[in-house]
């Protein structure tokens, strides 16, 4: 299988005045096409830094990084921007949608900056992306008319609209309740089944269990990689959870009636 991402001895040092912060201390990471990887680790371990490097928002202090075989270390800011546009789809913890802008227009945003002309009809592509995340009926809503889970779906639609090589999601469920979290994971699983490569950062074990491989990181180094032999099915768990919640509610109501 082809490697979408290949990182060798990646380091990242931030200069904070006199102090040097070693955010990454030699990371080797390969991700193949069609994988669904979660990155876990305590706060400050360098997860976001790694995601930013993978997503070409930043360049490493040292080490080699190949994205679909292309060495991106040597690229200019302009070329990095074009790579982000063509190959990367970001999903953030706080959704990062443009306020007062409809879901459809938010999803169209990456296509404004498409210089390759790959996508002939941006509006149609944006609608299709929204359909894929199950939000066709919310196209003309603006973010503050949408729930957190719905906003994150819009963000996912925006991430997939330009057919990227990889989706990078940094704690996408961090702001969501358990039902919405499972809902989002089910969207990711569906997209992954369609063949999209996904890397997801989380510090919740239950979330990581829906991915196919868990990479543990600590103090800027990868300490463990685990293959999840049988990832959980988010849709099934979601139904169970909803049933459970319904049951809980029923019990509560019965209690109230009795008292």
């Amino acid at each position: 299988m082809t490697e979408v991402i290949k990182m060798e001895r990646i380091t990242k040092v931030y200069q904070m005045g006199e102090v040097k912060v070693h955010a990454l201390r030699g990371v080797d990471l390969s991700v193949r096409k069609g994988e669904f990887v979660s990155i876990m680790g305590p706060s400050g371990s360098g997860k976001s830094t790694l995601m930013n490097l993978i997503g070409c928002l930043d360049t490493p202090t040292s080490g080699e990084y190949f994205l679909e075989g292309e060495n991106v270390n040597t690229l200019s800011n302009k070329e990095l921007a074009d790579i982000r546009n063509k190959k990367i789809g970001f999903v953030f913890q706080n959704y990062n949608l443009l306020p007062r802008t409809t879901a459809l227009e938010n999803v169209e945003l990456p296509l404004i900056y498409d210089r390759t002309g790959r996508i002939k009809n941006p509006r149609k592509a944006a609608k299709e992306a929204l359909e894929r995340v199950g939000l066709a009926d919310r196209m003309h809503h603006v973010p503050n008319q949408l729930s957190g889970g719905e906003q994150q779906r819009v963000a996912i639609a925006r991430a997939i609209v330009n057919n990227p090589a990889i989706i990078l999601a940094d704690e996408p469920t961090g702001n969501l309740d358990s039902v919405s979290s499972l809902d989002i994971m089910s969207v990711f699983q569906a997209l992954n089944r369609e063949g999209i490569t996904i890397i997801l950062v989380t510090h919740e074990k239950d979330i990581a269990l829906y991915t196919k491989r868990i990479v543990r990181i600590r103090d800027g180094k990868i300490v463990k990689e685990i293959n999840v032999n049988e990832p959980r099915d988010a849709i099934k768990d979601l139904e169970e959870l909803k049933k459970g919640l319904a049951l809980e509610e029923e019990i509560e109501m019965q209690e109230e009636e009795l008292l």
């Binding site: 800011n77 921007a81 790579i83 546009n85 970001f90 990062n96 443009l98 900056y113």
Partner: peptide
């Protein structure tokens, strides 16, 4: 500022 960051993350160049 946030909007600018979002635009850059989806591939806007500085010149854009």
């Amino acid at each position: 500022t946030r909007e600018i960051g979002i635009r850059m993350s989806v591939g806007a160049r500085s010149s854009d």
